Computed example of a mutant assay.
Amino acid sequence: MADWPMSLSFIVPPHSESFGLGQKLSTQSYLDRLVAYARAAERAGVVGAFVYDFPAAMDPWLVAFDLLACSPTLQPVVAVRPHQEAAESVARRVADLEFRFGRPTHVNIVAGATRTSRAADIDKVAARRRLAEFAEELRTDLDRRRYAAGECAPLLVTPSSSTPGVVPVDCVLMMARPRATLAEDVARVRAEQGVDRVAMLVGLVVRETEERAWEATTRLYAPDRRQEVAGRLFMSQVVSSEHTASYALAEAREIHDERLWYGAPMRGIDAPKLVGSVAQVSAWLRSCRDLGVTDVIVDLPPDPAEFGHIADVFVSGA
């Protein structure tokens, strides 16, 4: 789509069988899967690689190192929780990884989506205030450490929130939502946070025709009792306004705006999915560009071959 999006990212797969579920993979199986995803993402023109920090996940900084080591182009976006990290330590890792690999590692500053992942005895307003303080401290430390000419500045990112308080970052991310709601939320975020960049996290199931896309969706996201139980457990602990809003939309209707599907068993953990042909999904995404979305994060079914289906979405259309 010409020069849009400004960045295209994907979600780095975990070292377990699936997000939040299953046994840990063997070390070689994990590395083989990471390489397979990295190569597929590179071929599709993806640059950013979001590294989540769920309690059961591998340390995100180790994942970032593995990703940088196995890919010559991908740039990690590492989730950091201020109540667990010192800004100075994060700045040091970011600067040293850039020195080591010659490209930036970005930071996603999060409060934690669930009660168990947040700091104890802290309310949402206080957590938001801490995010702001941490972002300011981190930027100061990064500016101090990054002195070589020609270095690419790392981006600071934070999720959208209904809790008041400005967090001084470069980009705010939000889950996909129906376009009317998306337009309102993008406008609010731009006004409140003063950012130029808004990233949208969205799943994609793309095939030659709409019928085949829905057939693939049924197959790829078949009901799974383990996933359903994990999803309910996750929902019971959620305090994130982004996830809470997605639950409400899912309860209201399974499909919004013709093809935004909320039916995945783990809908609280992954994003809603755009389902359709290349032309249909491209048109939906172009409408988001017109609403002010600048960056896209794709959440794909657990198969690196899916990158081959989405590649044409971002090179077709004007």
Results as ranks from 00 to 15, higher is better:
Val166Ala: 10
Gly194Val: 06
Arg188Thr: 14
Val78Tyr: 05
Leu142Ser: 07
Thr114Pro: 08
Phe307Arg: 03
Ser18Lys: 09
Glu151Met: 15
Cys152Tyr: 08
Val198Ala: 05
Arg92Ile: 12
Val167Pro: 00
Tyr30His: 10
Arg92Pro: 03
His106Tyr: 12
Ser9Asp: 11
Thr105Met: 10
Leu220Pro: 09
Glu17Asn: 08
Arg259Leu: 09
Leu8Glu: 00
Leu21Met: 10
Ala79Ser: 15
Pro82Ser: 12
Leu201Ser: 06
Gln28Leu: 12
Trp284Leu: 02
Leu156Ala: 09
Thr163Pro: 04
Val94Pro: 01
Glu42Met: 00
Pro159Phe: 05
Pro164Val: 04
Arg81Pro: 09
Gly231Ser: 08
Val239His: 05
Cys70Gln: 14
Arg33Val: 07
Ser117Ala: 14
Gln227Cys: 11
Phe134Arg: 04
Val12Ile: 14
Glu85Met: 13
Ser29Ile: 03
Ala127Asp: 09
Ser240Ile: 00
Ile269Pro: 03
Val12Leu: 05
Ala149Met: 10
Ser29Asn: 11
Asp295Trp: 00
Gly165Leu: 06
Leu233His: 11
Arg212Tyr: 05
Gly292Trp: 00
Ile122Val: 15
Arg179Leu: 15
Ser26Arg: 08
Glu137Gly: 10
Ile109Phe: 09
Asp53Glu: 12
Phe10Ser: 09
Ser26Val: 02
Leu285Ile: 08
Asp312Met: 03
Gln280Lys: 08
Leu74Ala: 01
Asp143Glu: 15
Glu192Cys: 04
Gly268Leu: 06
Arg286Val: 01
Arg115Pro: 04
Gly292Ala: 06
Ala271Val: 14
Trp61Lys: 03
Gly268Trp: 00
Asp53Gly: 05
Ala2Thr: 14
